[in-house]
Nucleic acid binder design. Structure first.
Lengths: 219, 219, 219, 219
DNA sequence: TATGAATGAGATTTCATTCAT
DNA sequence: CATGAATGAAATCTCATTCAT
């Protein structure tokens, strides 16, 4: 009560300032979780995540109500970092397809593939914060693809969802195989896939172009 | 298999009954397991697999010593079916790249993607029966790729391991997303990837070409 | 499959005959749970219940999907036994109030008090099997009270819910106090309460008469 | 209390500040705990109690060494309030049985029933402060009962422990059922029970009369 | 032989209690 | 002194595997 009052004097901050060590712990937990998801898969034991983060297991539950919330934070965090990569690539690369190439490889390095296994079971794809981050990402990629098409560098029959799904799949960790090993291949295969995206089309694509909504829709 | 034959040799009891229902049970179990691995992932409960196969859980253990052995049989079964597809494609298609395209799509339909989650933990990639099946598959694909390269339809810097890894990744089920939904995309993305494999190369590939040995080697 | 066929020859029984030891285990678990609920309260650890029943903890979960279902079975079991007591009392006692007295004491001996802690949290009062058992019990008690009123032995302003709630409350275990100790008092207090039920009324009762529906209705 | 006084004697710092807010906090905590015990049961989470009291959880531990001490304070507080009710009733009511009736209903309103679930496990019934409060209460009730017996309004075979146990049991909250609902019945049943206490006895009571010592004795 | 039942080890989650700000 | 954060111990529940019919 006293401290809160003291705080209130200077603060527009919510109520009380979040403690420095608590913030650090929270970040460490998210980082450890992302690593574990990449290595072990989406069902990595929470106790192990806590151990890696250097905290007790209950501390994880102080920061995240349950496993689902931790997963959501990891997804959110990675999505935001990737959106940043997309924006940087767009700003710094000379042409749109070059920006797409750079984004794709950067997203792989950010472990976008780790998000896939994580989408299991009861994952709420429609959480507000997540939708916002996705929207931001979608806008960037869609802009890049539009421009690349105009520049004649991208075949007309692929959509943003096609790119995102393939990118995620190709950079997914192979469970039980350590990252350095799989990383040897990932960038090769992304490069091959990007080559396939360049016009002109060699073959007719089956199915319909995938959009971001397709990825969000749960059955 | 062995036991049934041996039994027939010496047995006066029940004479030459090859245990038709036991064989059928075994097949049903493998089929159910493959389905579950595709739908639910590699950690599908054995009890559920047994239920789907219409047998008691203990029956699974009569046929397969433990979970690892069941997984191995599924992998073996799928590998053999895929090898068959490769041989058929080679025999029936006019040119090698057309055969590769056909094989790739056929393998996706055979749920080659189900094999990936299966690589988890302590999976023994070097089991004799498995090595034989892989060898047979490798021979076919390698032959097809060699020929396609000679026909000027395949860029020179990709190896059999590149194709197999990318094929597996792109056709992996997205956990929590039902097969029909993901199937809508898989063939599109495989087609795009195949387009990227066709010469001439648009970009330089990073890393080194992947071989089958790369996939077998466990750390 | 074979055994099932063999079974089918003679059987109208459901599918397969429940194993003798499984039935015994199930009964032991319910009995142990009832004891524990009486002694420790409704949140008695399942592991402890399993230990008392002489089975592993997972066995409890084979018979009852979760804690709630076990609780429901205990409630059902006690309700049915008590309904039986009511019917016996009605048949064997000379007058209705004597039958009520006998029923009340018998219900206490059957640990009707154990049912109270059981009403906690998410207990589904409206489960079909439970409603049926309650209905049977209600019919008996209502009949007894009606008759007792006609015989001039029961004041007119009490209803079946009044009796059941008071009976349950007065025979509830005092947590932390062993049964033998509390049992010393229970029958005294029930007797006093029954004396209060006999006409003529000494005082006016506040509130409204409680019915069985009052007890079932959840907020 | 002690500390505040001592502080005032020697302290130049802050002079005679009796820590008004600390006292208020302590009272709020006890009140919140009593409410929670009534609503949720004896195992109400301390964090929730703290939240209701509008303090941090650690503040609870500043005032009460552990959960047992908080529980003891709640019991003590309720006991003292009830003792007060008994004395008031004795002073203001015309005859002893009327005073008993008034006391019983007042005690129910003071949530004497909340004390029962609280007696669980390792509750130390023999703590000095508690014994004193009980003694005070016992004296009052015993006096009332003695006098009522002399006035021919109370059957001879009931003792103070009988009344206290029955009163506590009948006013216990039914877990999972909100107070307003159960309160509808409590006063009815207390009234019925009191009617049963009035002479002449309709039936012979089993067991022996309960005294306060019976309630205190732990096994 | 095939089956339902049983089991212990492990995962998630909660909570009384201690620590650091 | 008061607080939010941290913690380990315990409770619920799941599942691969073994046992008994």
């Amino acid at each position: 009560m006293d401290t809160a009052a003291t705080e209130g004097v200077e603060g527009h901050r919510r109520v009380t300032r979040p403690r420095a060590d608590a913030v650090r712990n929270r970040e460490r937990i998210v980082a450890a979780a992302r690593e574990m998801f990449v290595e072990t898969g989406a069902d990595a034991p929470l106790d192990e995540i806590a151990r890696r983060a250097g905290v007790g297991n209950a501390t994880v539950y102080r920061h995240f109500a349950d496993r689902a919330e931790l997963v959501r934070q990891v997804v959110l965090s990675v999505t935001e970092r990737i959106a940043g990569q997309a924006e940087t690539a767009r700003a710094e690369e000379p042409d749109a397809f070059a920006a797409l190439r750079r984004f794709v490889h950067a997203a792989a390095d950010e472990r976008i593939g780790a998000l896939c296994p994580v989408l299991s079971d009861g994952f709420d794809q429609n959480h507000p914060a997540l939708l916002a981050a996705r929207d931001r990402l979608e806008k960037s990629i869609e802009g890049l693809m539009e421009q690349a098409r105009e520049e004649g560098m991208l075949r007309a029959d692929v959509a943003v969802g096609d790119l995102m799904v393939a990118l995620s799949q190709l950079s997914r960790p192979l469970p039980g195989i350590p990252c350095p090993d799989i990383d040897r291949f990932v960038h090769r295969h992304l490069q091959l896939f990007l080559d396939g995206l360049q016009a002109p089309a060699r073959s007719e694509l089956p199915g319909s172009a995938a959009t971001f909504e397709d990825l969000q829709r749960k059955p």
